[in-house]
Computed example of a mutant assay.
Amino acid sequence: MAAAQDRLNPLDQLIRAVGALPEGERPWCAGVVVAAGRGEEVLVEEAFGWAVRYAAYDEATDRGVELPLEQWVPMRTGQSAGQDAGPGRDRGQDTVFDLASLTKLFTTIVAMRCAERGGIDLDGRVAAYAPEFTAAAEHGITVRQLLTHTSGLLPELPLYDYDGHEQRLARLRAEPPATAPGTARRYSDLNFLLLQRVLERVTGRSLAHLVRDGITRPLGMTATRYRPPRAWLPRIAATEDQRRPWAKLDRGMLRGVVHDENAHALGGVAGHAGLFSTAADLTLLCRALLGGGPPVLRPESVDLMLAAPGLGFEIDQPWFMGELAGRGAAGHTGFTGTSLVLDRATSSYLVLLANTVHPRRRPADSAPRAAAGTALARALRPGTPGL
């Protein structure tokens, strides 16, 4: 693997450039942490740029309002704190990120664990487990359709515009699919909000507890949770100066609270968004799913999740995986700038966590993610020169 690590230098250089574009250009992100590995070997674990740089966004100048330099907070990993890489090191200095839609992967794993134990049938109807979801019952939506985004539900609803938790859930329960379930794929946060309610009804426990007891605690993911405590605040990357018209709520600069407006409206614990984590913790999850760590699922359940068409995971998507796509790579992205890719063909993983919405959101651009995936793919391909 030494040769592979030597060839990974282009990946290191690419991520460094992503986080530190020259002044006068609009960088893709204020800062980034990248972790890549193969099997038990860490190939890259680096942090570049700033976890906190801006106090606000100035709409008039279309630029971030920078904090005094002494208040900028660097991105950090254990390596940047002078520690050795690897699962045994102290990860207490690593930058914590709002994972956004990477949360869906954890909800998926919880669902697969529940299916393994006979609590749900993947082809069972949502109405069998949560009959209060009357629209899902009327249209026969199944658990598998939620996991594969084939329920026909809209991408999202403005639940944040409703007063009170019960009114928000009432709107969700009554929302019918826009297209017939099972006929087309349409990515939707609503799928995972329904799935959350199914899992909570079946188990009698909150999703936060199910994630903790079924995934993060067994894997030693000590920096992964919903609603991070105030003690973590110095480690957490800022997200957005959230204001209308570019955002859906007026909340100001966010740090340590969930960015997604619906997850915020639902109390910070949601099936589609809300988890916070670090690159080091996500590395532990990647290894477990690749068969190199403590198992959280049976092998056949992992196969169902990670093989086409995928359950919860996106399969072979070059727009964010680059040249890792094409051999069954599985992964996901998050709106705040996060992404994760597993390549079972080479037992490798790529975790890229950035704060692309700091100080404000921009049109989606996954070119840097794809370039990082291509750099890793080429680094692990014998005889192929790096970028």
Rank of each mutant, 00 (worst) to 15 (best):
D84W: 03
P131M: 09
P68S: 12
G82A: 06
A115K: 07
C114G: 09
R53C: 09
V42E: 15
Q83A: 15
P131W: 01
D98I: 13
G124P: 11
A17Q: 15
E59D: 13
L67D: 04
L11S: 03
A127R: 09
A85G: 07
A111C: 15
R76H: 13
G78H: 08
H139N: 08
C29G: 06
T61R: 15
V32K: 00
V18N: 01
A136V: 05
A130R: 07
L122T: 11
V44N: 04
A136G: 02
G124T: 08
E70Y: 11
V18K: 03
F133N: 01
A137K: 11
V52T: 12
V34S: 03
R89T: 12
G92T: 12
V126I: 14
T61M: 07
G86V: 04
G19N: 07
W28F: 10
G78V: 13
G86R: 02
P27H: 05
A111P: 11
G37T: 04
E46H: 10
Y57C: 10
A137Y: 04
R89F: 06
E59Y: 09
T108H: 07
Q79Y: 04
F48I: 00
T107Y: 05
E25Q: 14
A127P: 01
A136P: 00
W50L: 13
A85D: 15
V32A: 14
N9S: 11
A30Q: 12
D98P: 09
E40N: 09
C29A: 15
Q13A: 11
P27L: 08
Y54L: 04
C114R: 09
T95A: 15
E46R: 13
A127D: 01
G118C: 11
L21Q: 15
A130T: 09
G31E: 02
W28L: 09
E59W: 11
Q13F: 00
D94L: 06
G140A: 06
A127L: 06
T103L: 07
I141G: 01
L69T: 14
Q13K: 09
Q71T: 05
V34Y: 02
G78M: 14
A85C: 07
G31C: 08
Q13W: 02
R117M: 13
V52S: 00
A60S: 12
F106A: 10
E59R: 14
P74D: 06
A51F: 10
A56Q: 08
R26S: 10
G39L: 01
E59I: 08
T134K: 05
R53M: 07
G39D: 05
L102W: 04
G39F: 00
M112H: 07
A20G: 12
D94K: 05
F133I: 02
L21Y: 02
G119H: 07
G86N: 09
A136C: 07
V33A: 12
G19M: 09
P68Q: 06
A81L: 15
D84E: 15
T77R: 00
G88M: 04
L14Y: 11
H139V: 02
V52H: 11
V18Y: 03
G118K: 01
A127M: 01
E46L: 10
G88Y: 01
A60Q: 13
T95N: 10
G119A: 12
Q13I: 00
D12E: 04
S101E: 00
T103M: 04
F48Y: 14
L105N: 02
E45G: 05
G49Y: 03
L67I: 05
W28D: 05
V65D: 10
